[in-house]
């Protein structure tokens, strides 16, 4: 399957938006080549602002641009855009509900060799907790383009989580992407895997393996973490009674947290969260790190088996 990094797709989508809408402006913090805002900067130099290594100032400036009618897209690594500038995002962007889009790359452990200081496994939680913030975690290039366009088209703050490595292109160009609407990629009645970002393709692989064992697994692509598709979550809770969540993020506060909160509130069933178990990342090759932290199809298979045991024990 063809592989494209979501950050690459972001760079292309920005260029497209730049041509269509003169109000789209882009800010970066000395990482334009990595976040892929560089091409936008080349084509629209007057609408591109490299703020230097100053993420807080980047977010604050974007707030001002948005308050004056522009549609700013801000990019840096996820750890710096959401972590370093968190309080600026909260008080200058989310609190006044300004039209700022934060598109951050190098999320998760697939950053690789740079190590734990650079691997954001908290950003979904940080952004999800903010009232009015939309949170997109695209699984592939097609979804990234759709999320970027949706973000530009809606009024209010949006966080888009992007990755460094190439990931399989799962979707057709004709994808019907609706913010807040999960995409069911596979049906099944025994258990459901809610996956986001790079874990979506792994969830499909796991479901394939489990089908071979006679276990029917539903796979949902959660490109939007907020607003969460609660209907899809509750439907799966009722119809399968066993849920696994999968994310390249801490199991605290991210997709797993959101799904568990929803299930607990309305229809409690066992929820098994796959992600980083309250630890930081570390240096290594992306593939080694995925293995090290259990972000693999094999791990999802055992997670489904685990949650099925819990369901049977009820």
């Amino acid at each position: 399957m063809k592989k494209v990094a979501t950050r690459e797709a972001y760079g292309e989508a920005l260029l497209e938006l730049g041509r269509e809408n003169p109000d789209v402006v882009v800010l970066d913090a000395d990482l334009a080549k990595s976040t892929k805002t560089f091409d936008f900067g080349k084509h629209f130099p007057e609408r591109f602002f490299d703020m230097g290594i100053a993420e807080q100032n980047m977010i604050g400036t974007a707030a001002g641009l948005a308050a004056a009618g522009k549609i700013p897209f801000c990019s840096s690594f996820a750890i710096f855009a959401t972590g370093r500038a968190f309080e600026q995002v909260r008080n200058s962007v989310a609190y006044p509900h300004l039209n700022v889009k934060i598109a951050a790359s190098h999320a998760g452990v697939t950053v690789g060799e740079d190590g734990g200081s650079h691997q954001s496994v908290e950003d979904i939680a940080l952004m999800r907790v903010l009232p009015g913030m939309t949170v997109f975690v695209p699984a592939d290039a097609v979804e990234t383009r759709a999320a970027v366009r949706a973000a530009a088209g809606m009024n209010g703050p949006v966080y888009i989580r992007l990755g460094r490595p190439g990931v399989p292109v799962l979707h057709e160009q004709s994808l019907d992407f609706k913010p807040g609407r999960a995409i069911k990629l596979r049906d099944g009645g025994d258990a459901a895997i809610f996956a986001t970002g790079i874990m979506v393709s792994m969830a499909l692989e796991a479901a394939e393996i489990l089908t071979g064992e006679g276990i029917g697994v539903r796979v949902l692509d959660m490109h939007t973490i907020k607003p969460l598709d609660e209907a899809a979550v509750l439907q799966a809770a009722k119809e399968t009674g066993a849920i696994v969540t999968a994310e390249e993020h801490s199991i605290i506060g991210g997709l797993g947290g959101a799904v568990a909160e929803t299930v607990c509130a309305s229809h409690p069933v066992p929820v098994y969260r796959v992600g980083l178990s309250d630890v930081f990342g570390e240096s290594g090759k992306p593939a080694e790190l995925l293995e090290r932290f259990g972000l693999t199809p094999a791990r999802l298979v055992t997670a489904v088996q685990e949650v099925l045991k819990q369901k049977a024990a009820l």
Binding site: E113, D114, G115, G116, S117, H118, E282, S283, L289
Partner: peptide
Amino acid sequence: LRRLGSRLQGHPD
């Protein structure tokens, strides 16, 4: 340096 399991992380730890 920068290998999985090394004490020599990509950035000082």
